[in-house]
Design a protein around this nucleic acid. Structure first.
Lengths: 130, 130
DNA sequence: CGGGATCCGAGACGATACTG
DNA sequence: CAGTATCGTCTCGGATCCCG
C-alpha cells in the first residue's frame, strides 16, 4: 500500500514540513492584524474606514495588505461601489465566519488564562534577576 | 456602578486595544516557530536537538528564542541536567498542553479547509491577471 | 474615501563561530 | 550538546505623498 500512503501524504498537510502550504495561510489569520481584522468583521460587514478605526493602531497600508491576503485566501469578501467617494464593504465568507469563531475560541481561552501568564512572567523575570 | 465597570474593563482584556497585554503572548503561541514548537512538544517531552530536527527549517537561535518566550509565558518547562555534555529537556506545562490542544484544533480545521483556500487563491490570481 | 507608491528604520531571521 | 555572540540580510511595518 505504498502508493496509497504517498498520495495520502500529498493530501494531508504536514505542519512540521518546511514548505507546508498551510503555513502562510495560518500566518495570515493569526498574524498581528489578521486575527483582529477577522474578530472585527465577525461583528458584521464593515467599510474600510470603520474597520480601520475598530482595529486600533493599524495603518492604512497594513490593513489594506492584511485584507488583500485574507480575501485571496477566501476568508473575506470585498464589495466595491465605484462612486465618488468610493465605498468598499468588507465581510466574511462562510469559511471566514467559521475561522473567526474558532480563532475567537483560542483568544478567549488565552485571555482567560492571562493572569496565569502574567504571574509566570513575573516569576521568570524575578528568578532571572537573582 | 461606574467603579465596577472600570475595574472589570481592567480585568477583561480587549483584543482591539493597541496595548492589550495578551497580544505579545498570542503572537508567541501562533508565531512562525512558536506554534510548531508547541505542536511538537505536545507529542511528549523532548531534548533541544530532537526538537530542532522535528521543527524543520528552524535555526538554533530562533528555536532558543522561541522556547525562552514560551517558558517565560508559562507554556513550557525547561529541565536542565548539568552534565557533560549537558542535557536539556523541554516539556509542556498543563497550560501549555491545553493551549497546544486548542491550537491543534485550529490548525487541523485550517488544513481540512486548505483545498478550499487553494481554490480561492487560484480564482483570485486568475481574476487579477485578466 | 479607499487605497497605491515610495522611502526609511526596526526588528526578524539565518549562518557562522565560539563557550561551558 | 545546548546554547550565546556577532554579523549581514531581508521582511515587516509606519509615515508620507499621490491618485481616482
Amino acid at each position: 500500500m505504498t502508493g496509497m500512503e504517498e498520495s495520502f501524504a500529498d493530501l494531508a498537510f504536514d505542519v512540521f514540513a518546511r514548505d507546508c502550504p498551510s503555513r502562510p495561510t495560518f500566518e495570515h489569520i493569526t498574524g498581528r492584524w489578521g486575527s483582529i481584522a477577522l474578530m472585527a468583521l465577525d461583528e458584521g460587514p464593515m467599510r474600510f474606514g470603520v474597520l480601520r478605526r475598530r482595529v486600533e493602531g493599524v495603518s492604512e497600508k497594513m490593513l489594506s495588505q492584511t485584507l488583500q491576503a485574507l480575501e485571496r485566501d477566501g476568508f473575506v469578501l470585498r464589495d466595491v461601489v465605484t462612486t465618488i467617494p468610493p465605498r468598499v464593504e468588507y465581510s466574511l465568507t462562510p469559511l471566514g465566519i467559521e475561522t473567526a469563531r474558532r480563532l475567537r475560541g483560542l483568544i478567549d481561552f488565552l485571555e482567560g488564562r492571562m493572569p496565569e501568564v502574567l504571574k509566570a512572567q513575573e516569576d521568570y523575570d524575578s528568578a532571572k534577576d537573582a
